[in-house]
Design a protein around this nucleic acid. Structure first.
Lengths: 390, 390
DNA sequence: GGTACAGTTGAATCGCCTG
DNA sequence: GCAGGCGATTCAACTGTAC
């Protein structure tokens, strides 16, 4: 895999371009891909083409307000987050910063893009309220439950064992955002993925260390967290933007999962660490990342085409699984039930007195005494279509 | 148990007083106890004496914004929360309401009181930001993970499987708020209670029904949730205020755990249901509710009093568990180590070169060849104290 | 009298395409 | 842009009835 470093000066901010990707930049007007840009994230976000990003992951400063040093019961001192980038004069300074970067990120999002923002109780309420004010539409709040949180050493509060993520669409009306429901459900023992995720914090070999063996970044996120986010809300080839790139977890996971990434970061020491980290990542086989089969993505089949294909004949009697209702197939692909003519769905709804019905699974045909749903015939029709296409 | 209903008109709001308590009202200037007041919660909160409440639990309207009807895959319709009390014109109307009741609640809190506010992603971010703006100091955000949440029927989002609570002190400086750390830890297999709580939603026999068998209140909270809150952040006899009383879970749990409650509610149908519910509650035996032994609550023992009690003699040599350091007990309760005189804690810290040390567990005395920490002697001193008191 | 199965329900911001 | 049709979509817990 190639690694290139290119230094380019830009008027909008002091920017160093660092490229680690396998893919060339897109067409003009599209955002740069697989690069880390150095500089202020608000300026860099504003310089992005409008509506150019598929997914945003943001881990902004938490605005922690630590009064003094914290020590463990054995008197060792906790290495707290006290970096300059986490210092704000007051809530209103933090709010102004938050409003700026969120508005700029929203502008860069495609209409169907979504955003994940992670935070703790120190900042997440302000972030969430500002997101709502800016027009983002919250889809879920997601709780990252830590298997191994830091205990509360003073015994004065509950163990702060989770962080909160807000998942939001760009606009209230957005319906077609990417959400790989079936894949997530399959990965969760065929049960819907919940809004609470249990994952370990980033420790051990995964945790980046500097040359002196200290943690390279104070708030490095676990790759498993980013992997679940990208697998839930993006497709291979999508552009994932991380305006607070830090140690580059987003880039490493994007490369592994064959997404493109774009990262913004102010500190060159973090960029160097992320750069080396991403260079060492090997993308997974594309086969491993093929989208899980989704019923919604299957080609649409009209019931009448089953008749045209000779899979079912006009005049065939249909019934439901419990043989409570009867209908007859008409030559035009409608059904006849008690003198009424309608689609497989309408007649199914009518038979049950319900507002709606999936006729494919409701209506059955009989073959040597056994009932099968007409959905089986649809599957045969789809197989025929596939063969014809090959 | 007595039940009394008293109707009283008040100028501040249209108020009906409904009393269910076992305890008489406190002295003038103190808040009423064990009563449900009917009326607007902001007016009622403002009418409370300042700094009169020990704990607040608030379950405000969530400001759900439901577009249309939602049906399950079997076409049955979900009975959504569409009550008038959850309707607000826009975010700014909700914010104004939130600011009003939170400011009024804060005024009614004792300086050491804390507040729990529960909400979902629809409202909790606005609530949290406003709490911070008003001067509340967030201690934890707590996640109520539901064992049995409603699924996401359309498969378009993650199952919304939790709600969020914000636990906050009245002021940033508050240090002496009630937090029964030891009891919670003991109840959690001797492991610190975490910020994520797994509890079922309120269904079955616990769920209040109206005369026609329908749920009496759309958002009744489980008693287990309130019980954990009160056991964490209040003592028997404390006054627990709930400005959105609803079906009266707060009152029922308060009575059972021998706390006093004060509830505000606008709808008389809810008040009637809560009234009957609380009347049926039997308080637990006081013995069952005696505060768990807390190290902090134990009487303080000065090291010198061990000498006074004859438990240890001046001149006794002390050492640490690994016999690396040596000191001698002086008659005034200080230790002598290498020519330096200081408290058991200071000398322990000095010996180890650490900033602090718990001398009680660090220093040991020798008896027939075996080492025991001087903390054992402190326990003996406490036992003697208790015997003397009886 | 248990067991099995069907039915009900819960703070919900819950499609997508074609004409 | 709007109307209308297609057709995809649920988990845990409790309740009541049938066997």
């Amino acid at each position: 895999m190639q690694t290139a470093r290119v230094g380019i000066a830009r008027p909008v901010a002091q920017i160093k371009v660092t490229r680690t990707g396998t893919k060339a930049d897109g067409p003009p007007g599209a955002a740069r891909r697989n690069a880390i840009l150095r500089g202020d994230c608000v300026s860099l976000l504003r310089a992005l083409p409008e509506a150019s990003v598929d997914l945003v992951f943001a881990d902004p400063p938490y605005n922690l307000q630590l009064a003094g040093a914290l020590s463990r019961p054995d008197q060792s001192v906790v290495d707290a987050v006290d970096d300059d980038w986490d210092k704000f004069a007051d809530f209103s300074a933090y709010d102004a910063f938050t409003k700026d970067w969120l508005a700029a990120a929203r502008r860069a999002m495609k209409p169907q893009a979504t955003i994940f923002v992670i935070g703790s109780y120190h900042n997440i309420f302000r972030v969430g309220a500002i997101m709502q004010d800016l027009g983002f539409w919250i889809l879920n709040d997601i709780v990252w439950r830590k298997t191994n949180p830091m205990p509360n050493f003073r015994g004065r509060r509950f163990t702060n064992a989770h962080e909160t993520m807000i998942w939001a669409a760009r606009d209230a009306g957005a319906k077609r955002y990417t959400f790989n429901y079936e894949a997530l459900k399959a990965a969760n023992e065929d049960c819907q993925m919940r809004s609470d995720w249990l994952l370990p914090i980033c420790v051990g070999a995964e945790r980046l260390k500097d040359e002196r063996g200290r943690k390279a970044h104070p708030t490095q996120k676990p790759e498993a967290l980013l992997a679940r986010i990208m697998q839930a809300a993006s497709q291979p080839g999508d552009l994932v933007l991380d305006p607070f790139f830090g140690s580059g977890t987003t880039g490493a996971v994007a490369k592994r999962l064959r997404r493109d990434y774009l990262g913004f970061e102010r500190e060159s020491s973090y960029i160097d660490a992320a750069q080396a980290r991403i260079a060492a990542v090997e993308p997974l086989d594309a086969d491993m990342l093929a989208p899980a089969p989704s019923k919604r993505a299957e080609p649409r089949i009209a019931f009448v085409s089953l008749i045209e294909a000779g899979l079912i004949a006009p005049g065939t009697p249909l019934t439901d699984a419990k043989r409570r209702h009867k209908a007859t197939v008409r030559a035009d692909g409608t059904l006849l039930i008690g003198g009424v003519i309608g689609s497989i769905h309408k007649t199914g709804a009518l038979a049950q007195g319900l507002p709606a019905c999936n006729g494919w699974t409701f209506w059955h045909f009989e073959e040597s005494g056994a009932l099968s749903p007409i959905d089986d015939l649809r599957q045969q029709a789809r197989d025929l279509l596939r063969e014809a296409a090959e």
